[in-house]
């Protein structure tokens, strides 16, 4: 079961939309598929991201995966804790393992995201 108050992407990221801001992370499914996360590369605060643009990288012992901006916006915060504790992505992907906060360019883009049921469906098929 995934948290019911979030929205999701096909790239296995989650988005918590609060007004014109959004918090972004990767899902438990993504974290499990990656395995032990050992490095997270996140953007500078202030950077403007187009929807679907690559904003960073998450690396496990074996694999390197790009992170994609689920919505367009400017980065207002990054989770600095991941620089020293990348394992938070595995242990608390929906909580302390969050990655960035965005000020949304167009909150209406939220309608392009998957709801929890649709995301559950996606992961059960793969």
């Amino acid at each position: 079961m995934v948290p019911g108050d979030l929205r999701y992407t096909k790239d296995h990221e989650w988005v918590r939309i609060e007004g014109d801001e959004a918090t972004v992370g990767v899902t438990q499914y993504a974290a499990d598929q990656l395995g032990d996360v050992v490095f997270v590369d996140l953007p500078e605060v202030g950077r403007a991201l187009e929807q679907h643009a690559t904003f960073g990288v998450v690396e496990s012992v074996k694999a390197v995966s790009d992170l994609f901006a689920p919505l367009a916006g400017a980065v207002t915060a990054v989770n600095d804790a991941l620089a020293t504790q990348p394992e938070l992505v595995n242990s608390q992907p929906f909580g302390d393992g969050w990655m960035i906060r965005l000020r949304l360019a167009d909150p209406a883009q939220g309608g392009t995201l998957l709801d929890p049921a649709a995301y559950e469906q996606l992961t059960s098929e793969s």
């Binding site: 395995g35 032990d36 050992v38 496990s60 012992v61 074996k62």
Partner: peptide, 9 residues
């Protein structure tokens, strides 16, 4: 098997 519980563990 590539891993059981986790590579680091």
């Amino acid at each position: 098997p590539v891993q059981y519980t986790g590579i680091i563990e």
